[in-house]
Design a protein around this nucleic acid. Structure first.
Lengths: 215, 215
DNA sequence: CAGCTCATGTTAAGGCCCCTAACATGGGCA
DNA sequence: TGCCCATGTTAGGGGCCTTAACATGAGCTG
């Protein structure tokens, strides 16, 4: 293949060479700036330097592009979570708090991905890959929950799935309500990351788990 | 005033008589059906039986109507929460669990309001009334948190604001991720309401508060 | 290397939406 | 009774989504 090298280089002929990727990048930029509803198929095309009809060669419609952004977002998210969890080393509690910080860091640093994944109204079954990618990301939380639970005595163990859902709910709640600093939202007495960490410590204590050893 | 009585009655002359309310109702219906981005100024006008330009006599633009919906939503929300809390009777724990159920019931039964309030991207300072209404609703949670905290011994009391933020975050997380049953979201092993209740019980236990006496 | 084919572009056009400007109506007060 | 202005209306510019019909050229095939 003789790539047209339009990864950001200008000169191109009739064909773009990398339009799909260029559209994704444009969509991320627009969603990050103006929210999911501020993203426009036509403007993404303009940014990529093609006509408004060109994107339809790669996506059935605007929603399909959004769903693709969400898929890629879940994959990146999963990768971040896996890295943060790091197999539960050096111990489950430390790793778990890294996981919480990674969750919020993703929501904060990749607002466009996070929006597409959770706030754009993309139905999870829009795309077969989408649900799979979302499930893989959730599985990281679930595995972490299972590892933590294993430290509890038999008979005091909550269902791992329920615990994972609690973790996710609180993380998402903090991220959605307080995660993006200055966006016309509520001022906080502490950072969103610290708020989540404190909440998770209380929750884990409620389960009977020991507090973390490191901040 | 000789009301035109167009609260839903058809016959009207040149003037509608109640267009603002009719637009709000139309907006709620559309948002409930198709999400915040599916709501259209033009379609709301059509539903109210007026021309597409008429709404501009009552709202500067589409966003201002959305903000008004959010204001009304926060007021209704506050009223529901106040009623559920009911002054903390007969005891704080019982009242608190009523509060949690009321939160989810609102998100579930008034999805249009909830969307406009939390998911439509309406900035809180779009409207002076908006922030005030949101603050009043949050204050109910904060007061509940304060009452619960008062049962703890001195020196073990967390900041009430932080606790209220945790409660809100988990409630919103559950509502946003799992609150609307079949909307292409994730299947749950339990109802969203039970999930939240279980999470809150664990959280309260982590704070050292006694479990609720009634289910 | 010539020629064909089909993926990937383009332009044109219909339909809907947001919003503004200019005009129309009639409810309620002077 | 008659006037005013809040609240309607129509007309129109500009943008977006999407489809249809047409154009280009990259790479295979012989």
């Amino acid at each position: 293949m003789s790539w047209k090298r339009d990864d950001s280089g200008q000169p191109r002929g009739y064909h773009h060479g990398n339009l799909k990727e260029a559209l994704i990048r444009a969509a991320l930029g627009l969603i990050g700036e103006k929210g999911p509803s501020g993203f426009t198929f036509a403007e993404a095309a303009r940014m990529a330097g093609v006509s408004p009809a060109a994107p339809y060669r790669h996506y059935r419609d605007r929603d399909e592009l959004l769903a693709d952004v969400a898929v890629r977002g879940f994959s990146a998210f999963e990768a971040d979570l896996v890295k943060a969890w790091d197999g539960g080393k050096p111990d489950a509690e430390t790793a778990f708090h890294r996981l919480g910080r990674a969750y919020l860091a993703f929501a904060h640093d990749q607002p466009a991905f996070y929006s597409a994944m959770f706030e754009a109204g993309v139905p999870l079954d829009a795309n077969a890959e989408l649900r799979a990618a979302a499930d893989r990301a959730f599985l990281v939380l679930r595995n972490a929950a299972e590892t933590l639970i294993a430290a509890l005595p038999q008979g005091e163990r909550p269902p791992a799935l329920m615990m994972a859902l609690h973790i996710w709910a609180m993380s998402h709640g903090v991220a959605a309500l307080f995660g993006r600093g200055d966006a016309g939202r509520r001022p906080l007495p502490m950072s969103a990351s610290d708020l989540l960490e404190a909440g998770m410590l209380i929750y884990l204590k409620g389960l009977g788990l020991p507090p973390d050893k490191a901040g």
